[in-house]
């Protein structure tokens, strides 16, 4: 399982990547949408974990851009909204199945990642 973490809060993504690597999950991190697009040009990821609100390219717009060239890539959104329901109500995004609210519980994140990979294998 190879993960790309995208959040403009560097200290968040770098530490999350470190914690995932301690659990033997390979995770790269970037702090901008542009860097995420560049990374996916040379590397193949199973899942992109995207912050919804970022400068220039937000997570929802970034997903649309990444989908064009990475048909197999799956997505988990991380949001600073009060709850997952608040995010769903505020977001018009229909293609994203997976949401997590900050601060994220790493076990919940890994469960969602495994669920996505299991579904990918079944498909």
């Amino acid at each position: 399982m190879k993960i790309l973490l995208v959040d403009d809060e560097k200290e968040l993504v770098s530490t999350l990547a470190e914690r995932l690597s301690l659990r033997n999950i390979e995770a790269d991190w970037v702090t901008t949408g542009e860097a995420a697009i560049k990374n996916t040009e040379t590397k193949i990821y199973d899942i992109a974990v995207l912050d919804v609100k970022m400068p220039k390219i937000g997570g929802i717009e970034l997903k649309k851009k990444l989908e064009e060239k990475n048909p197999g890539l799956k997505y988990i959104f991380i949001t600073g909204h009060g709850s997952e329901d608040d995010f769903k109500a505020a977001s018009s995004e229909k293609g994203a199945e997976y949401y997590l609210v900050k601060p994220v519980n790493i076990d919940d994140l890994i469960i969602k990642m495994k669920e996505i990979c299991f579904k990918k294998e079944q498909a």
Binding site: L12, K102, V104
Partner: peptide
Amino acid sequence: KNVLAIINENAG
């Protein structure tokens, strides 16, 4: 929320 998320990851 971002502040709490960073504290959460580093405490974790």
